[in-house]
Every structure is written in structure tokens, then in C-alpha cells.
């Protein structure tokens, strides 16, 4: 039986207050409530704009990682992007370096992860030496999440080639950054959105009809207007 909500604050809804009273940290509540919004953003960008990225999970989780990293210190976001790029560049170089060794898939990925992790560690140290607060303040898990991206990248690289993998990685980065801008408490829009969602958490449910709409939508994607522009010009 949930304890009754004694007062309805202007800041957060009764429901969120109740959750927080059970000693769930406010950051956790916020991020969990933001997750469906990020997923919606990914779907919207895929179905309507035509940005592919690495599925729905990877861009969402990277966006969350960015939000978590930027939470304490907004300037950390540039370090997060640096880490992202380091992961991809090292991941790609490792593929060429390991090609001649002819290893099975998983051991090869393990070597890649090892080298990527060491590189990230080096970057963190370097970033830390530059500023007093440093990037060291950032949590472990968001960084780890970005590192695991390398497996996805390597497998796409094998399946569809380096060019496709780079494009997908760029799209993933863009989606994650859009997610960060719209939802992080360190940006103006993001603060408004998070305040809103903490005040009206049930609004999340309103996303479901929107998902249904997107799930039934058969129109051309924005990217397809570009891809087929010659055809469209011709047949109109």
C-alpha cells in the first residue's frame, strides 16, 4: 500500500515525491523517466527523418550516458564526445591491425576492447591533467557504456563495411547529442523538459499513442526525398 501523498509540491508530482521518499535518488527517477522520451526521439528520427544509427538501444543508452556525464559539469560533454570518437577510431584501426592475425570474432573483439579501454584511460588522464576538476569526476558506468559501443561498431564494420559503420556511428552520435540537448538538466530546453516530466510523469503514457501512429506511418522519410529526388522530379 503506497503511503498517501501529503502535499502536492509545485516542483515534483505526488508520484515522483512518493518514489523519492522510498530513497530512490532523484537522478535515477529523472533518467528512468527520460528513457522513453529518448526512445521516442530515436524512433522519430528513424521513421520520419531516416537516420539509422545502431538500432534503438545504442543511441538511447549513449544519450543517457551523455546526460549522466553532463549532469555534474556541462563542460564534461566535450570529453564524452572525445571518448566516443577515440573508441571509434581505435576500434577501426584495431580492425585493420588485427586483420592479418586471422582471429575468431570474439577474441578479436576482446583485444579491441582491451586496447580501446587503455586508450580511453589515457584520454581521461590527459583530460584530467588539463583541468583541475578534471574529467575524473565523471562516473564509471557512462564511460563503460560508451566503450561497449565498440562491439556494435566492429560487427557492423564486418557486415556492411567501414563506410557504412562510420555513417551509422556519426548518426548515433548526432542522435545522442540531440537527446542530450533536449533532455539534459544542463541545457535550457533540457531543464524545462525534465522539470515538466517530474511534475507530470504520467505524460510519458501519452507517448504510446504517438508510437502507434509512427508504427502505422507509411509516408516517405525525409532522407528518401533526397534519395529519390531524381525519380520524384521525373514522375511529377
Amino acid at each position: 500500500m503506497a503511503s498517501p501523498c501529503i502535499y502536492n509540491s509545485k516542483e515534483v508530482s505526488c508520484l515522483v515525491q512518493h518514489i523519492m521518499e522510498q530513497s530512490v535518488p532523484v537522478e535515477t527517477v529523472t533518467i528512468l523517466l527520460l528513457f522513453p522520451i529518448i526512445a521516442t526521439l530515436v524512433v522519430l528520427l528513424r521513421q520520419v527523418i531516416g537516420m539509422h544509427a545502431f538500432g534503438i538501444y545504442t543511441p538511447s543508452i549513449i544519450a543517457i550516458a551523455f546526460i549522466a556525464i553532463g549532469q555534474n559539469n556541462p563542460s564534461n560533454i566535450k570529453h564524452a564526445v572525445t571518448v566516443y570518437l577515440v573508441v571509434l577510431i581505435v576500434g577501426m584501426l584495431m580492425r585493420y591491425a588485427l586483420k592479418k592475425l586471422r582471429l575468431l570474432y570474439l577474441p578479436r573483439v576482446a583485444i579491441t576492447i582491451t586496447v580501446v579501454t587503455l586508450s580511453v584511460l589515457a584520454v581521461l588522464t590527459f583530460a584530467g591533467s588539463l583541468s583541475r576538476v578534471g574529467f575524473a569526476g565523471a562516473d564509471l558506468f557512462p564511460i563503460l557504456i560508451i566503450i561497449t559501443l565498440v562491439e556494435k561498431f566492429v560487427s557492423v564494420q564486418i557486415e556492411k563495411g567501414s563506410r557504412a559503420a562510420i555513417i551509422l556511428a556519426a548518426e548515433t552520435l548526432i542522435i545522442a547529442l540531440v537527446g542530450y540537448l533536449l533532455l539534459s538538466t544542463s541545457t535550457a530546453i533540457g531543464t524545462k523538459v525534465t522539470d515538466f516530466i517530474l511534475r507530470y510523469p504520467y505524460a510519458i503514457l501519452m507517448l504510446i499513442p504517438f508510437h502507434v501512429f509512427l508504427g502505422k506511418w507509411t509516408g516517405l522519410r525525409a532522407a528518401e526525398y533526397i534519395r529519390f529526388h531524381e525519380v520524384l522530379k521525373k514522375i511529377r
Binding site: 521513421q47 531516416g50 502505422k216 506511418w217 507509411t218 509516408g219 516517405l220 522519410r221 528518401e224 526525398y225 529519390f228 525519380v231 520524384l232 522530379k233 514522375i235 511529377r236
Partner: peptide, 20 residues
């Protein structure tokens, strides 16, 4: 406007997957 009208003749990813 013609451009968008023409777009109803072209098959996109969404319609390919869902309708066909």
C-alpha cells in the same frame, strides 16, 4: 506541391515494410 504528390508513387522503407 507536385513534388509531394509524386511522392505517393514512390515506395519508401516504411511502406515497403508495413504494407508489402
Amino acid at each position: 506541391f507536385d513534388f509531394f504528390k509524386a511522392s505517393s508513387q514512390v515506395l519508401g522503407m516504411n511502406a515497403r515494410n508495413l504494407t508489402y
